[in-house]
Design a protein around this nucleic acid. Structure first.
Lengths: 225, 225
DNA sequence: TATATAATGACACAGGATTGTCACATTTTT
DNA sequence: AAAAATGTGACAATCCTGTGTCATTATATA
């Protein structure tokens, strides 16, 4: 939390400085970028715990930067949107952003959301064993269990399962799944996801039903609390 | 969004008419003023959702009008500026201008910004869970619920429901609905909307009555607060 | 290194769900 | 009553997903 490093991408200097001041008051380190290009350069250079990203940016806009970051990281991203390009339809499909803050916003609110996300992701990383019903995954062991019986999953199946477990109850498009499991630079058939879902479902036995098909979109790992 | 009223202050008649045409295509009402004095008079008379304001105006210039409006309202203001000077913009941000469009501009861009600002003010799109009475939609899950029971909606039905929920109490023409759900480039029978409304109503059970027919126009999702 | 085994990605096909359209019924307006 | 607009059921075309299979690639084993 304190001691985290944030990449702050915002072209308006005064706003950037203001946010920086507030963040530093929370003992959070801030690296600033004034445009999309700079943001991506800084992104490659160092590791960050969270990104605050303005949508309207010179060079590359926020969506582009976001997409690029999402190609190899699940780091929390907060978008500062003044204009919402997404229409009704598109919005639900954009699953990469963790939170939105709409301009004009109170900096206090933004900071609150930053803290919430940092806490959450910190928490996520700590978790070494994920358990859902009879299903258990020990990340350190790199092994899944069903009824405490080791499950014989292939690497892709394991990765796929983890993506589902990390995004419980979230509808994921095939694109997103392909990105997360195969990597951003993978160029292949979307339907391949289907095949792997089929195989994973089979191995998960009755738990396979938790992987719900979201028709016209993709899949969702459903857990009933 | 649709149904909003905009005060358009621009002295050049042709440009004004052009902007008006585009805005009305979006179901936005337009009130025109040709100079600063008229603008302020109209401002006092009625309520608006947004103001488009040319900087160079007869009688009072745009800054004066802007200042005056800001004395009693936080309504979104878009300035049309001829110069794109940095200091001009900074000056404007002090006055509380929400967005700038620099002449010459494409009307489409202006419209996009208008829509963005209107959306921002009722930033419904950002909300991930929409709840109306017994009806609930979780956008991340991509799932609707009625009495907390999952609703089995087809993709089109889901999209249609979202459009209604994002435009509560707004009469929407079939054209608009077709645009939002099927995409602007879709070429098909307007009556198709009717069929899908029928199907959605049925699945929404008693809540189906909330989708009110606006004879001669289209439909409206009605909520009584 | 050669061989066997497993994993992977692509694809085609089947079956079912979804969709758009139309004709006709019903309602509302003139 | 006629005209106009909307509601509705039926149905064929289309879309989408599940699945089996196969060639290729990667990995493990001898």
């Amino acid at each position: 939390m304190a001691g985290s490093t944030i990449l702050l991408v915002e072209d308006e200097k005064n706003l950037r400085k203001l946010i920086r001041t507030y963040l530093e008051r929370e003992m959070i380190n801030v690296v600033e970028a004034a445009d999309g290009k700079e943001a991506l350069e800084l992104w490659e250079e160092e590791k960050y715990d969270l990104v605050i990203l303005d949508v309207m940016l010179p060079e590359y806009d926020g969506w582009t930067v976001c997409k690029r970051i999402r190609q190899n990281s699940h780091i929390p991203i907060i978008m500062l949107t003044a204009r919402s390009e997404e229409d009704d339809k598109l919005f639900g499909f954009d699953l990469g952003v963790d939170d939105y803050v709409t301009k004009p916003f109170s900096v206090k609110e933004l900071i609150a959301r930053v803290k919430a996300l940092l806490k959450r992701s910190n928490h996520q990383l700590m978790i070494e064993v994920i358990e859902v019903g009879e299903l258990k995954v020990d990340k350190k062991m790199h092994q899944a269990f069903l009824h405490d019986e080791p499950l014989d999953l292939t690497p892709k199946e394991y990765d796929l399962l983890l993506v589902f477990l990390h995004n419980q109850n979230q509808a994921l498009t095939r694109e997103i799944i392909l990105d997360r499991v195969w990597g951003y630079d993978y160029y292949g058939d979307l339907r391949t996801v289907d095949t792997h879902v089929k195989r994973l479902r089979k191995k998960l036995k009755h738990m396979g039903k938790q992987i719900v098909t979201v028709r016209g979109l993709g899949y969702r790992f459903e857990v009933t609390n």
